[in-house]
Amino acid sequence: MPRLRRDETTSVRFTLNGEAVSRRADPRMLLSDFLRHECGATGTHVGCEHGVCGACTIRIDGTMARACLTLAVQVEGAEIETVEGLAPEPGRLSVLQDAFRRHHALQCGFCTAGILMSLDTLFSDEPEADEVRIRDVLGGHLCRCTGYEPIVRAALDAVSRLRSGKTNV
């Protein structure tokens, strides 16, 4: 039972989008800040910092999670996935990302990273997810540009393409 003192940093080892990384964090560092400031993964956005807006949503060990409601020291040994890991390779988009572009499911893009992580997790957990499930999961996000309808259309398009076996574009 090691005790990490408030003014000490410790090494936190985990995998970020499949790559093993190790960075130092003090006890109070939020995972959202850790990803952005220590790992340089600025795709994860920071909005409300109390779990309401959803902008910082990422995947921890396969489940969706708010990075701002997690301490960096909690994810020792965990598998972290962020929006940077969605595209199959530079210059190509995932099916979901491509649907967002075609349906104008983003304007300013601030909320987009978190919404993509939630929907990507939903579609991998529940390939048969319907509009009710999509709206349920979207309920955990705030978007102040789109009015949500284009996001729902993009999500429905993406899930139907994924079901019919379309791969990333």
């Binding site: 090691p2 990490l4 003192r5 939020l30 910092e49 301490l71 020291v73």
Partner: peptide
Amino acid sequence: MKPALFDYVRADSLDEA
């Protein structure tokens, strides 16, 4: 909106906590 300073203990058992 950042937490104030605190010490962190990762308990290995209920007794430790």
